[in-house]
């Protein structure tokens, strides 16, 4: 005799494996990407591409800004930079540019700055408000004489997950947006290691996983194909997160 409990578990297991067959089916996954495409297309269509993300006041700051992702890159090279206070660290700007750059932290801090109090929304659902100061990315890209062929800006980072390096990418709409900055200061203090020292990307109309920390190298590219997994970011390549992180 099959007990009711066994039967129930059996039926449950069959149902669940049936559900799993649906959610793991490549065809189903392909169909579901229409939602993502529709979101990107329609958001680009109905929104002003230069619209600024809401900015807040110091009274709105999160009392404690949660550290997320990697709290400390594991590479010995990064440890050396920490030991020397990023004194011989330099940001590389390359790819489809006429004038590749190598900028020290001091040079980045001497450039024109922008300060903004903005909200970071994690894909998980939580939000935190922080004050960021940094160099507008558009400034660096113009200085580097970015080519017209560039479609995306890729951020190569010092951190990794199980040896796989973190990276992210944004399109030119976000790259040239006035609020898109490379922040070296957070809440009026040097950017803490947990938040991406020496510099992190702030791209204020996108979710947290786009806010690349520990940025070492910036690359202007015509296509994301061939860069790591080709989907434009670590989470996009390895966990199927949407490249468009505007929702």
């Amino acid at each position: 005799m099959i007990s009711r409990r066994t039967a129930l578990i059996g039926v449950g297991a069959l149902t669940l494996s049936g559900c799993e067959r649906v959610t793991r089916s490549p065809t189903v996954r392909k169909i579901l990407t229409f939602g993502e495409k529709a979101t990107l297309t329609s958001q680009r269509l109905v929104t002003n591409r230069n619209a600024l993300a809401p900015e807040f006041t110091r009274a709105d700051l999160s009392p404690r800004f949660r550290v997320n992702g990697n709290a400390m890159p594991a590479s010995p090279e990064y440890a050396r930079h920490v030991a020397t206070g990023f004194a011989d660290w330099a940001l590389e700007v390359g790819g489809l540019v006429q004038n590749p750059l190598r900028l020290t932290l001091a040079q980045l801090k001497a450039a024109p700055q922008r300060t903004q109090i903005t909200r970071q929304d994690c894909v998980e659902g939580w939000s935190a408000i922080g004050e960021w100061t940094g160099v507008p990315l558009s400034l660096l890209l113009r200085h580097a004489q970015i080519s017209d062929k560039a479609q995306f800006i890729v951020f190569h980072c010092a951190d990794d997950f199980s040896g796989i390096p973190y990276y992210e990418s944004i399109d030119m709409i976000d790259a040239l947006h006035p609020q898109t900055i490379l922040a070296h200061t957070m809440n009026r203090q040097p950017l803490p290691i947990g938040h991406g020292a020496p510099i992190r990307l702030r791209v204020e109309r996108a979710l947290g996983y786009k806010q690349a920390k520990f940025v070492m190298r910036i690359e202007a590219v015509a296509s994301l194909t061939g860069i790591h997994g080709g989907k434009g970011g670590y989470w996009e390549d390895h966990s199927g997160y949407q490249w468009f992180a505007g929702i």
């Binding site: 669940l16 559900c19 799993e20 959610t23 793991r24 996954r29 169909i31 579901l32 990407t33 229409f34 939602g35 993502e36 979101t39 894909v123 998980e124 989470w235 966990s239 199927g240 997160y241 949407q242 929702i247």
Partner: peptide, 15 residues
């Protein structure tokens, strides 16, 4: 899905 995957949950949700 009937296992934890935030990325997949979001794909279903927005579709």
């Amino acid at each position: 899905p009937n296992y934890y995957s935030l990325a997949e949950g979001r794909q279903w949700h927005f579709f």
